[in-house]
Design a protein around this nucleic acid. Structure first.
Length: 110
DNA sequence: TGCTTGACGACGA
DNA sequence: CTCGTCGCCAAGC
């Protein structure tokens, strides 16, 4: 059986709980999972199979609120349009009011 | 088996 | 505030 898949499943579970109009960072998820230094692995895990799962990957951005994954979506603007559709303002691939939109699983999630 | 890359983060200039 | 460098972990070649 797989062994490191638990990390994947946990990442997906956290992402699914992200409320609409909010967003979180890879580092925050990694820290919530106890892998504070696994921020890159979070993005790698999702990018490897997020299409096979039903998770709002567009609500996950880097610590700077930048849509670094926008070009991995169907189109380079899909991620931005989806966020704006949920009420999140995006400017130059960066979330505006990031400090307000930021959703910390360690504090919001129990 | 070993080197390189990557949806990142923190620190310094 | 923006740019550049180093560090972490896992997968790919």
């Amino acid at each position: 059986m797989k062994k490191g898949n638990d990390f994947f499943n946990d990442v997906y579970d956290v992402v699914r709980q992200i409320p609409v109009g909010r967003a979180t960072s890879y580092g925050a998820i990694a820290a919530y999972l106890g892998q504070k230094r696994g921020a890159r692995q979070v993005g790698w895990a999702m990018g490897s199979s997020y299409q096979e799962h039903d998770i709002p990957a567009h609500r996950v951005v880097n610590k700077a609120g930048e849509l670094s994954a926008s070009q991995l979506f169907e189109t380079p603007t899909t991620m931005q349009e989806r966020l704006e559709s949920e009420g999140v303002k995006v400017d130059n691939n960066r979330i505006m009011d990031w400090d307000k939109v930021f959703w910390d699983p360690e504090k919001e999630l129990i």
